[in-house]
């Protein structure tokens, strides 16, 4: 069984993993990081989005063994000194969620979106989140939340847990 060394939310883990183990199952079942949900299981919905070396990936479509030597950030690693990440704050204050199932993936994808484009237009936000589905039809407030976070983050030095 291959042995992997992976940093998840700032902590280094070494584990033997079956090659077929998906990253999302490694995160949830082995590390207990259940903040990352499994949504569609078909690479469509984006609920399981995490950051791999800072870039968004769908963790149902990456093998755990492929995360070897990489740095993974999940929704659980966003708090800074106990405070919510500005993107989490914005989703909260703008009511960017209804049932909340898509929210971890939406937030991770939105953070990646602002890394590439710190001041996106509404259209660019919608395009940037095209890989994340919200079945409560909460897109209006999600776009509002990302816009609000972009404004907040442009006035703050803090962008990630590290």
């Amino acid at each position: 069984m291959p042995r992997i060394k992976v940093e998840v939310d700032g902590v280094t883990y070494e584990d033997d993993v079956e090659p077929r183990l998906l990253l999302v199952h490694y995160l949830r079942d082995r590390l207990g990081k259940v903040g990352t949900p499994v949504g569609c299981d078909t690479t469509n919905c984006g609920a399981c989005t995490v950051l791999m070396d800072g870039m968004s990936v769908k963790s149902c479509s990456v093998l755990a063994v492929q995360a070897d030597t990489h740095d993974i950030t999940t929704i659980e690693g966003l708090r800074i000194n106990g405070a919510l990440h500005p993107m989490q704050e914005a989703f909260h204050s703008e009511h960017g969620l209804q049932c909340g199932y898509c929210t971890p993936g939406m937030i991770m994808a939105s953070i990646d979106l602002l890394r590439e484009n710190p001041d996106p237009s509404d259209e660019e936000i919608r395009e940037g989140l095209e890989g994340n589905l919200c079945r409560c039809t909460g897109y209006q407030n999600i776009v509002r939340a990302v816009r609000s976070a972009a404004h907040e983050m442009s006035h703050s030095e803090v962008t990630s847990h590290d």
Binding site: T43, S56, V57, D112, G128, E130, G131
Partner: peptide, 9 residues
């Protein structure tokens, strides 16, 4: 093609 997360991989 697809979406940003898919295009990263």
């Amino acid at each position: 093609v697809a979406d940003p997360a898919v295009r990263h991989r």
